[in-house]
Design a protein around this nucleic acid. Structure first.
Lengths: 329, 329
DNA sequence: TTGTAGGCGTTATCAT
DNA sequence: ATGATAACGCCTACAA
């Protein structure tokens, strides 16, 4: 039913090989037949069957974007970065998520790397071991790891430690010495880096690190923030840095306000991420912005470079965070 | 390089046809060869080449999700709904956006409908004419239109008018009679429905509709809200319903607070959509929630039903909104 | 400049 | 129960 190369070929009185060459802009075709073929193709409203083309060329012209969970605004933001610079690029983006699937992440990688559905992959915030990612290298499927440093694959990530240093430095500069740190270890890798940054900044200013001041939360949610507040207040801190994320930070602010504790007067709080809600709460949240769009942008550019053979060596890109001063600290 | 049916066939001493039947769980295969083939497939870590399979079966096992702009949180939320119920389903989701592309929406539809890359499409919040969507029907590519009523294709959308009635009713019940309505005509179809709901509610309560009280904004943004406030205040209303969206509503609240006008004391405001920021602002925003996840859920289920031939007639689903009472009104 | 022929990896229809 | 064989629609040597 759909029109094929052969249909065009018949009407044009040539072979489908010739039509193929015209469609793909190959040289060595007479202007006359080129015109004729193009005209007929247009009349018939021809579009190549991309599946057949893919089989012949062994390319799907599609990039897989693999995310743990599309519910995370962090992930979505990176995806937006990917899609928006993907405009200029002739690759299709297909989406895979891993949470709650029958397949685990490792199995998905395995399958995607071998079933030839995608030409390359972008892994956003994956938590598997580097060993499990190796399959992409083994199958020579170009792959970019986003939001996490990776030794064996290309990667783009933010300087979490640096961001944490900035935040802590700022609080210290404001005169605080009793500074808590609220982390979420479930976001395992960044959590450690940020905690390290916090420690380094303290050390730099000769403030002793007090393990009792790091409180752990299960999630980056308002509720987690509410829950954390209790411990913070009991610890008598005057400031809190919340690498766990802005939602938790907002929860802490809310709870403080509820008890009549002025923010930042009696308690200064600094978040991490800079989500949209951060500039809408009161007081507006001071926070460490992660360049999410830029990460997506880098990722898609890097992978296209690989796919087109423009780049071959292992590449790592660390993006800086940006400290955003608002009202909460 | 990748292992194919033929590789397995050779080692098993059978033909690739037989292997294919085993892989696809076809009947009439002796238990002996089935076992042997499966064993070898596993050893070789075989995965079918989905492209080749697609060519043979004329199915890509992939659904295209077409969105105007991934930057819209509304769209993202629906996408999350699609993906999360898509878990149980063996279709891949590939993403297309239309804003800022070389191709316009209509051309994209044309191409997608013909190039056989996707088995079906989900159109989120598209703004083209029904005529331009017809291509999907013509090419018999199942297609679900989301967030907009559509006569010629299946669709799932919310009862915008009803939601507006609820909001306006509520304000009237609170004793307001001078109620403004802030709309964004760029979101063309819902805007009119919501405006109608607003009018209907007024009429029901014998309040004259005053065109001077509907103010138009360019976007659903905080800035747009700030800008709108001026006109609202000049019009001396005591309440404002903001079908344009929650961000605009938040902007209005902010501006009121800045001028010392208590919300909801002197000005009650009701938004539309229920975005995450709505429960984080102060006062928390009273608003009309749209069931975004559910729309995505319905859409993916409907399209899979079509694809599997379980459903064939034109289907339309209208979902109710939910009025969320918080503090701003 | 164009045609011929084979292959890409599967599935599907016949025979056997 | 399995093997030949021919699609599926396109690309690409190589030959003419």
């Amino acid at each position: 039913m759909p029109v094929t190369l052969k249909d065009i070929a018949e009407r044009a009185g040539v072979t489908s090989a010739t039509v193929s060459m015209v469609i793909n802009n190959k040289p060595n075709i007479s202007e006359a037949t080129r015109r004729k073929v193009l005209k007929i193709a247009k009349e018939l409203n021809y579009y190549p069957n991309v599946i057949a083309r893919g089989l012949a060329t062994r390319k799907s012209n599609s990039i897989g974007v693999i995310v743990p969970n599309l519910a995370s605004s962090f992930v979505v933001r990176i995806l937006q970065g990917i899609k928006s610079t993907n405009r200029d690029v002739d690759y299709t983006v297909t989406l895979f998520d891993t949470v709650g699937q029958k397949e685990n992440e490792s199995q998905l990688f395995q399958r995607l790397a071998r079933e030839r559905r995608i030409d390359g992959a972008i892994l956003i915030g994956t938590t598997v071991s580097e060993d499990e990612m190796k399959i992409f290298r083994d199958e020579s499927v170009p792959c970019i790891v986003v939001a996490r440093k990776c030794d064996i694959l290309d990667s783009v990530y933010v300087n979490n430690e640096g961001g944490a240093v900035d935040a802590t430095d700022y609080l210290i500069a404001k005169g605080h010495t009793a500074i808590a740190c609220v982390i979420c270890r479930k976001q395992n890798l960044p959590a450690e880096d940020r905690l390290n940054g916090y420690k380094k900044a303290l050390e730099k200013h000769n403030i002793a690190f007090n393990p009792a001041l790091v409180v752990e939360v299960d999630d980056d949610t308002i509720e987690a923030g509410h829950a954390a507040f209790e411990k913070l207040w009991a610890a008598q801190v005057t400031a809190v840095f919340v690498p766990a994320g802005d939602m938790a930070a907002i929860g802490i602010v809310q709870e403080a306000k509820k008890r009549g504790i002025p923010v930042p007067g009696k308690l200064a709080v600094v978040g991490f991420d800079d989500i949209p809600a951060a500039e809408v709460v009161e007081p507006m949240l001071t926070t460490v912005r992660q360049p999410k769009l830029e990460m997506g942008d880098y990722a898609i550019n890097m992978i296209v470079d690989k796919l087109e053979g423009r780049e071959s060596e292992l590449k790592h890109k660390e993006l800086p965070t940006k400290f955003i001063v608002r009202e909460s600290a």
